[in-house]
Design a protein around this nucleic acid. Structure first.
Length: 297
DNA sequence: CTTCGTTCCTGTACGC
DNA sequence: TGCGTACAGGAACGAA
């Protein structure tokens, strides 16, 4: 499942393969993949044809390819992408076989490698969006549909004090807060569990009573674990998350909590527990991460 | 306003 | 072998 490190791996791959190239045509094979492009698939394709893509940007789990403006005074646009659960952006020879779940295909005017959006579960999406001023980084631009997405902890624009203040005002549990992309972006179920294990915090720890030291601990843990994952190409549980050339990442072997039900905690040996949480799974160590007396879900 | 449950989707694993 | 069911879960949306 692509979270911040996996999306960053893909962003870097795109930077290498598509930056500066001009899209000749885009073909939408499944309308659901462009459902957030409200003007429809034909408009989506029309807005991309003839446009040159610039160096890709990322915030949290979203990435976007700015499109070179036709004229100086035109509002900027970008091709915005979210991989959802199973989305892949793949680069390869245009004449290779079509993937079973190929949803959108873009070819370039140099007849070189094409760009394909492949997505089994169709939770991901692509759209062309206007760029607007960023609420977090002065002078920067972000696609309008993601102005509500907070800076991620690997950005300079991330404000740890503001994050701590928001935690204290919230009446919820720390994991729910970590997964709330309007508070901190880029963290999904896997890295939330890993960060909480490293910070020795239970997922239901109420945020309104958290100390600054605890907040700093979980933030540092999130940065460390996502940085380490990025360094080895991300986490690939199955073939659903891959780089732009189809390669898997190697971080799965380094996971300490996620997916390790009944396996010994690598700090204390206690079997890792699995709890139901938000209709999904939460993994933690019963000893290192004791459940708080007043838990919040 | 905040908080939280529901919903979308398809392939895999597993019990009977 | 085949069928039904649980599970994987990001984030928009709507209800309370």
């Amino acid at each position: 499942m692509p979270e911040l490190p996996e999306v960053e791996v893909v962003r870097r791959g795109l930077d290498r393969w598509t930056t500066g190239r001009t899209i000749a045509a885009a073909e939408v094979l499944h309308p659901r993949s462009v459902r957030r492009h409200e003007a429809g698939p034909a408009d989506f394709a029309g807005r991309l044809a003839g446009r040159t893509v610039l160096s890709p940007r990322r915030r949290g789990k979203y990435m976007w390819l700015p499109l070179r403006a036709d004229a100086e005074d035109e509002p900027g646009e970008a091709l915005l992408a979210h991989l959802g659960m199973s989305g892949q952006l793949l680069v390869g020879k245009p004449d290779r076989e079509r993937e079973k779940h190929l949803r959108v295909r873009m070819v370039f005017d140099d007849d070189g490698h094409d760009l394909r959006f492949v997505d089994q579960r169709t939770f991901g999406h692509l759209m062309v969006a206007d760029l607007v001023p960023d609420a977090f980084a002065a002078g920067a631009l972000v696609p309008e549909p993601i102005v509500h997405i907070a800076a991620d902890p690997l950005e300079d624009a991330f404000d740890a004090d503001a994050f701590y203040g928001a935690l204290r005002r919230r009446k919820t549990g720390i994991k729910r807060a970590l997964l709330d992309q309007s508070l901190i972006s880029g963290v999904g179920n896997i890295y939330a569990d890993e960060a909480l294990w490293r910070a020795r915090l239970h997922w239901a720890r109420p945020t309104e009573t958290m100390t600054r030291a605890e907040a700093v601990r979980v933030l540092e843990a999130a940065r460390e674990v996502m940085g380490a994952a990025l360094a080895v190409g991300g986490t690939s549980f199955d073939s659903l998350y891959v780089d732009v050339d189809g390669e898997s990442g190697y971080f799965e072997r380094s996971l300490e909590a996620y997916g390790r039900r009944d396996e010994p905690c690598r700090r204390c040996g206690t079997p890792i527990r699995r709890d139901e949480f938000m209709n999904r799974s939460s993994y933690s160590c019963p000893v290192c991460q004791p459940k708080p007396r007043r838990a919040r879900y």
